[in-house]
């Protein structure tokens, strides 16, 4: 009886493995020092602004436009990545072609290449006198130094998120499901649309959310190609930097707080999608 009461109050289940106190102690101290104290500083500073000031700063037209540009371009880029990411993952999982290994490894380039390098490289390519930009200028298409340039940079940084979430789930698809669909008279397009894609939906959604979340906060690759025109092609992270350089800490804090709230909501949604997917399909995305 006493043992049972004790186990109710125990924080952890008994184990013969040593080092729980040390490991958890190190983890919690480091987490508190590096992540929790700095982040709570931001929360504290934005709550110290008072609701009226905060609302005024957050609804400033330049801030609203910057947030709209950040979230809008990130959304569009994530949509583009969903399409090309799924095609790329499909090609990598299902087909054989020369150079496949290299392409597969290249998908992670945006994870490994510093964002500033990606930024100046993309700008050089898509500027009006660049390799690709000079081909598009005669057609009247301008990419660099417009909001479209932001979308291009965000497509670059977001691509691996979609491919790497969808790819493992595609590999798990049982071939027999497709054979069954074919046996029952479905043509290939019907099998893909009605049988394969629904099973991939949670993974695609997760990949979309990850690419979107990353795109909203992205700074390094965007600032070179965006043109950074206030109200038009100025992203929210850049506006934070500008406010900081003006020593306008309240405005910087307010923009950051709005971005954080929306990002955490996104994180929550991602976790809900994954939990739902595990329940529905038996595997997580």
């Amino acid at each position: 009886m006493t043992a049972r009461t004790a186990s109710l109050w125990q924080i952890r289940q008994p184990s013969v493995i040593p080092g729980f106190g040390l490991a958890l102690g190190v983890t919690l101290s480091w987490l508190t020092l590096i992540i929790l104290i700095p982040l709570s500083g931001l929360v504290w500073r934005s709550s110290a602004l008072g609701w009226a000031t905060f609302w005024e700063l957050a609804t400033d037209q330049r801030t609203v436009n910057a947030l709209r540009i950040s979230f809008g371009t990130a959304f569009l880029a994530a949509l583009i990545n969903v399409f090309f990411g799924v095609v790329l993952a499909w090609v990598l999982v299902r087909y054989r072609f020369p150079g496949k290994r290299v392409i597969d490894a290249m998908v992670d380039l945006p994870f490994a290449l510093p964002t500033a390098v990606a930024g100046i490289a993309l700008t050089t390519l898509y500027a009006p006198n660049g390799w690709i930009g000079s081909l598009l200028t005669p057609l009247g298409i301008k990419i660099a130094f417009t909001p479209l340039g932001i979308v291009f940079a965000l497509v670059f940084v977001g691509l691996p998120f979609v491919v790497r979430t969808v790819q493992p789930i595609m590999e798990e698809i049982d071939k027999e499901v497709e054979e069954a669909a074919a046996t029952l008279g479905a043509n290939r397009l019907q099998t893909i649309r009605r049988v394969l894609l629904p099973g991939l939906a949670p993974a695609v959604l997760t990949g979309f959310a990850l690419a979107f979340a990353r795109g909203v906060g992205e700074y390094g690759s965007v600032i070179f190609i965006a043109g950074n025109l206030p109200y038009v092609s100025e992203i929210a992270p850049l506006l934070i930097v500008i406010r900081l350089e003006e020593f306008n800490y309240p405005a910087a804090t307010a923009i950051a707080a709005v971005m954080l709230v929306i990002s955490f909501a996104m994180l929550l949604i991602i976790n809900m999608i994954q939990a739902w997917s595990r329940r529905r399909y038996g595997y997580g995305a």
């Binding site: 500083g41 931001l42 909203v216 906060g217 929210a236 992270p237 934070i240 900081l244 950051a256």
Partner: peptide, 13 residues
């Protein structure tokens, strides 16, 4: 899930 700029900002604050 935090923008790099915000990661810097928290230390400035």
């Amino acid at each position: 899930s935090v923008s790099p700029v915000i990661s810097g900002l928290v230390f400035v604050l």
